[in-house]
């Protein structure tokens, strides 16, 4: 699958945004703001909004006809993308209402804040699920058409939120609760295991083969002619070939950047008296670029079944 940069950036950045937002809300709801002053909290919330919005905006970059983008809200009934759009849109007013509720009540967690915050958290998960389902619902990508995908998206949603949240707290001069670092470590570890198992899943042959594609199931089928000399839309979109060495390297870097390093860094933070800003920044950068690479791999390792018609055996 051709990895459209805008989509990669969208999913990862907005993932950080929603994640951060979610953690900010959860921390508030659980034990009050970890920040010294409301402004810092507000700043963090704003940052989350910005990240979400960058992602959302960048998602329109790959549209060939953006003037109809508004129509994307209309097929909520069947389309996960539409659902994602609608929920993303819905998220803003609710999140704003949550902030307003806090603000009106002098940053005290009122029932309204609980309700709205809770809704936001749930919405964040649902939204992430919708995003994941855009991919996971596609039977055309055996590598995506798995429950691992929504699981992974949710996992990374929380994980990136934790990393970003920790950074926000540290940047404000504070030290997050040990639970944050611990969950960072745990999530990174789960992420590592998850990714390893996904990599092995991806390697499994799909039951859609050049034989089922062409109906000739009793002999080797080889492509002789594509019917067009230059690459067409389908090949440009779905056939993106990366050498096995590059892929293996990318996998290693992904694991290291996205999970191992943040895990080590979080563990380091835990062992320190006070959290280090540079380590936190570093962890987020690792996490962000690691997850970006993860998303890149997620695309390039996904093989659309139309490739069978272009000669791929299985």
């Amino acid at each position: 699958m051709h990895p459209a940069l805008s989509i990669l950036v969208f999913t990862v950045t907005s993932g950080f945004g929603y994640g951060l937002m979610t953690l900010l809300i959860v921390s508030q709801l659980l034990g009050g703001s970890p920040f010294d002053n409301p402004n810092a909290y507000l700043t963090a919330l704003l940052l989350a909004f910005v990240l979400m919005s960058i992602g959302l905006l960048s998602s329109t970059f790959h549209l060939a006809n953006p003037k109809n983008a508004w129509r994307a809200f209309s097929r909520f009934r069947t389309s996960w993308l539409s659902r994602e759009g609608v929920l993303a849109l819905l998220y803003y007013p609710i999140a704003l209402a949550y902030v307003t509720a806090l603000w009106l009540n002098d940053w005290q967690t009122t029932a309204a804040a609980y309700a709205l915050g809770g809704l936001c958290v749930v919405l964040g998960f649902v939204l992430t699920h919708c995003t994941a389902m855009i991919y996971a619902s596609l039977k055309t990508f055996p590598q995506w058409h798995t429950r691992l995908v929504p699981f992974g998206f949710s996992l990374f949603f929380v994980y990136s939120g934790v990393l970003a949240y920790a950074l926000a707290v540290v940047a404000d001069g504070g030290s997050p609760h040990a639970a944050v670092w611990i969950s960072g470590c745990v999530l990174a570890f789960i992420g590592l295991l998850f990714k390893l198992s996904y990599f092995s899943f991806v390697g499994e042959p799909s039951k859609t083969t050049i034989n089922t594609a062409t109906t000739f199931t009793e002999a080797t089928v080889r492509l002789f002619d594509t019917g067009h000399s230059a690459e067409n839309f389908l090949q440009k979109e779905f056939v993106y070939v990366v050498g096995p060495k590059t892929k293996a390297l990318a996998r290693k870097i992904t694991l290291a950047l996205a999970f191992v390093l943040p895990l080590v860094l979080s563990a380091l933070q835990l062992s320190r008296d006070s959290s280090s800003l540079s380590l936190a920044v570093f962890a987020v950068l690792c996490g962000y670029f690691g997850l970006l690479l993860e998303r890149w791999l997620f695309f390039i390792e996904a093989k659309h079944v139309v490739r069978r018609f272009y000669g791929e055996q299985h």
Binding site: L63, N65, R71, A72, L138, T140, T208, H304
Partner: peptide
Amino acid sequence: DKCMGCNLCAWACPYGARELDRDQGV
């Protein structure tokens, strides 16, 4: 008149039956 050229339908089609018209954006 309603398509926004997101390609998602082409992703969902196993048979390569959909092609984006780059010039027209649909």
